[in-house]
Simulated assay, not measured.
Amino acid sequence: MEQRVTLHAKSMRLRSRQFRQFIKKLGCKGRQTLHFTLVHDTMARKPIHPTSQSKARAMTLHKPMEQLERRLSRITLLTRTKQPVPVLRKNEEGYAVFMTVNYREQARGDFQAVRAHFIDVDLNKISELLPTSEEAERRVQELQADSVEQIESVTVTRTKQGRYRLLAVRGKRRVGQLKRKFLAKHAKLIRGSMVVETKNGYHIYWAIRQGSITRFVAIQQALVRKFNSDPKITDLSRVMRVPGFYHRKNPASPYLVHVKRWGRKRSFTQAELIQRLGLTL
């Protein structure tokens, strides 16, 4: 029992350090307000008639960095009406913890600084758009018969344009293989970046100093093309999962989001990043 308590305390200290060092690595400063979004990982949608007992699917929270408690177990974030919300408890209840990467003081205000460029590499899904139901069915059969891909589930939905969206989900072992391949393939390109490991892949950050807000989207789009990463990760207001908290889409198999590599100490300039990665804007 005593050993279990000791291990838990050690784990909480590590998670607390990961969280605080992550936000510092992004260049967050003492008086700046940090903005967070908590989204329930397993709820399909917000209750139609929320009650005091029902759970909201998402909540927006904030707090100045200098007021953040040092221990993860004690951190509370504030609602718009200044009500404190214990973040660790919410994570244990199934809420994922996301943070707005770039800086703006007000939740709906203009952005004032680029803190980082970043990508989301999701390796557990295969998404394809097919012209006919016959081709979609044929592709489903191919994937299900493919022992290499280790497909766990496949769904096909018809789009408004009459095409067919196929979404296949890979198994845990295959995702692990693809994670290792990704790091090996892009080792030179991601050298010096901060690598956050998620359940299904990686979030990769290049901390930026004196970045141009007007160039942000173009550089993000170039990164998507370079790494074939999630094409939605291009806007200034993008939120990303925070290290130190669990991914709980599968409650039976929670995954602790964590920093795998901290990267170099000195942040990048946008010009350096473009040249270093050979980005075409």
Rank of each mutant, 00 (worst) to 15 (best):
K46L: 02
E134W: 00
Q141M: 10
I119A: 00
L123S: 00
V196W: 12
K82R: 14
I190K: 06
G30F: 03
I119V: 15
V196I: 04
L279S: 02
Q177P: 05
R180T: 15
T33D: 03
T76Q: 07
A44R: 12
R80F: 08
R180D: 13
L178F: 14
V148F: 08
I213H: 03
P251S: 08
A218M: 11
L279M: 08
D120H: 05
V87Y: 04
N124S: 14
M12Q: 09
V175F: 01
E134H: 02
Q150Y: 00
A9D: 10
V224Y: 09
F22C: 04
L143D: 06
S153D: 09
F36V: 00
A113C: 12
N124A: 15
A252N: 08
Y202C: 01
V169T: 15
K249E: 08
R31E: 06
S11W: 02
R108C: 03
P131E: 07
T198D: 02
K179C: 13
R248Y: 01
Y205Q: 08
H186I: 00
V5Y: 01
A207F: 11
V148H: 10
N91P: 14
G263P: 04
A145Q: 15
H186S: 00
I274M: 04
R89L: 09
R108E: 15
T269C: 08
V224R: 11
M59E: 15
K199I: 02
K265H: 04
T6A: 15
M12Y: 03
P84W: 07
R238W: 03
R74L: 11
N250W: 06
R163H: 09
I75Q: 10
T42P: 04
R264W: 01
K188S: 10
K226F: 05
S193C: 13
H258E: 08
F111A: 12
Q83H: 12
L223G: 01
V239P: 01
H203M: 03
V85A: 05
L143R: 14
R173W: 00
K185M: 09
S237V: 01
K82D: 15
T100K: 15
S11K: 14
M99W: 10
E134C: 06
N91M: 10
W206A: 02
T157Y: 04
K249W: 07
Q270L: 05
S54K: 10
P231K: 01
R80W: 06
M194D: 09
R139H: 10
R276K: 15
V196D: 03
R4I: 12
K226S: 01
R173S: 09
A252F: 14
S229E: 07
Q53C: 14
T280A: 00
D120C: 06
E149M: 10
L61S: 12
P50F: 11
T214C: 02
T76I: 05
P86A: 11
P254D: 04
C28N: 14
L223I: 13
P47W: 11
K226G: 02
A145S: 13
V239H: 13
A168L: 12
L236Y: 03
F227M: 05
S212F: 11
P231H: 07
M59T: 12
A145L: 13
R80Y: 03
R89K: 13
L277Q: 01
A271L: 04
Q270Y: 01
V121D: 06
Q275A: 15
A56F: 10
A58T: 15
R89V: 04
N102L: 06
Q83W: 05
G162P: 06
M12I: 14
L236C: 07
L279E: 04
T79H: 11
Q106R: 12
L78W: 13
